[in-house]
């Protein structure tokens, strides 16, 4: 009885400590991708590989060939990412630029069309969120890593802003549902800032 209680208490403590320092264990729905109002597949838009169906088989086009992702650039939709603090999500109008012509028969696209027709904004569940007392500016990070000579942690040279995204956000292009892959806790930030001799003054982020 006491042993069971102690074990539970230890596990709970471990969970809290882990969640405090990094990402929580993926149990009880923690760490899972949130359910979104429209099941937007990044694989179809940003990915450029063969698309897979839920059963793991390749998705086929009407002529029998394998369907590939469009390989769109991240900045096509998250267009503020190299211009301001927030990467920004695209307005419904931008979705409609293409979807008034394509995909109108798909269940999820219908939701977008309905939002457009009824002029309702789409409200997404935030996947990445930093606390209020932290200021993170996408633009500065994009600018730094796209400068020649500043190699990404992966050892590669970023040529365009889109090459930088996966450093923190993981391989979003191959995620059907977007999930947070890095802890994005202060230690995570500071480690990287130290590696690149970026300022680690408190006011760099806390201002």
């Amino acid at each position: 009885m006491v042993a069971t209680g102690g074990l539970l208490l230890t596990l709970a403590g471990l969970f809290v400590v882990r969640a405090w320092w990094t990402t929580p264990f993926e149990v009880l729905g923690f760490g899972a991708a949130p359910e979104q109002p429209v099941a937007f597949p990044h694989t179809v838009h940003a990915g450029d590989g063969v698309l897979l169906m839920e059963d793991g088989h390749p998705k086929l086009n009407s002529d029998g060939s394998e369907a590939y992702g469009l390989g769109m650039d991240c900045t096509y939709c998250h267009r503020n990412v190299d211009k301001g603090a927030a990467a920004s999500v695209p307005p419904v109008e931008q979705c409609m630029d293409c979807h008034k012509a394509v995909g109108g028969d798909l269940q999820e696209v219908k939701k977008v069309i309905q939002a457009w027709d009824t002029r309702q904004p789409l409200v997404w569940e935030r996947v990445h969120r930093l606390p209020d007392h932290v200021r993170f500016v996408h633009e500065a990070h994009m600018r730094f890593f796209t400068q020649p000579g500043n190699l990404l942690p992966s050892g590669q040279q970023a040529l365009v802003p889109s090459d930088v995204c996966s450093t923190c956000h993981g391989d979003v292009a191959n995620m059907v549902e977007v999930n947070q892959v890095r802890s994005l806790k202060m230690g995570d930030c500071v480690d990287c800032h130290r590696d690149y001799s970026a300022p680690t003054d408190c006011v760099t982020c806390h201002y």
């Binding site: 307005p91 309702q120 997404w124 569940e125």
Partner: peptide
């Protein structure tokens, strides 16, 4: 704060 909104119309000041 756990949500993020896609506006309906394209903001004019977005480049």
């Amino acid at each position: 704060e756990l949500q993020i909104e896609s506006p309906v119309d394209m903001p004019e000041d977005l480049v």
